[in-house]
Amino acid sequence: MSGSVFDAGRVASGTSSISIRDLSLEFPIFHGGARSLKKMLFKRGKAALASSRSLRTGGEVRMDRAEGGPVYVQALENVSVEIRAGERVGLIGHNGAGKSTLLRVMAGIYMPDAPNVHIRGQVAALLDVNSGMNPELTGRENITLMGRHKGLSTAQIHQLERDVEDFAQLDTFLDLPVRLYSSGMIVRLGFGLATAITPQILLMDEWFMAGDFHFRERAEKRLSSVVNNTDILVITSHALDVLEEWCTRLIWLEGGQIRMDGPTDDVLAAYRVDMQVPDSQS
């Protein structure tokens, strides 16, 4: 795909890398008055009169200055990760451990310009089932949009369309709006689309394992051909057997911090032990 816009992100094969140093990320959560300009101006005025200080409730959620301001959720805390070309990394941890947030940082969606985050290489991210698909548009139109996003020419887009059509096997559904699809069909389309163009860094959230058994088999075949051609793979999953099969290294996140980072077998052994012991000792 020479000449496409996002070739700009490509680096020489085998030199892709992800480097995150000491990253902390707090989610601002806007609710109620925090969304209102009027209330914020009013609050600033009041705060100037009665000086208030920031307070922290618990370990993860923090209120800003005065009541009614945004609430901050500590999603990642002092996370440092170095990933080199050739590594297949899995992220594990409980729900809300920060796996998806870390994946979004690697995809350049959260904190795109942070100086302590360096991503080298062309990235493709399969972050949620819809992956930016517009549910009102037909599958075919979504394929066109994806191709335009990648800077493909019209001829290349037709090629992409055929490729995804063959893989997803949606037949006539491809010409119907995506909102009419079953969740399995959306996965077929999203997966086919995201793996049609081989990236240098592939980031995947766990949803891709959805779909019926027949599809899973074909998906794994397609994925392995993509993965063999990418420099870096980062996936999150709760399915430990999937991680065991695909990954050479696991990063175990807990409460936004890295609890363990090492070869798959070591981390999995520790994780399994931890899973069996309930949290009663704390």
Binding site: L23, S24, L25, E26, S54, L55, R56, G58, G59, R62, Y72, Q74, E77, M111, P112, D113, A114, P115, N116
Partner: peptide, 27 residues
Amino acid sequence: MMVSSGSSEHTRLLDSAPRTRSRIVMA
């Protein structure tokens, strides 16, 4: 966690945001 650590983490996030010039270049 103590009260002070909450605010210092927040400051660190703000510090890690790039400075004005590089922000404008990125924009």
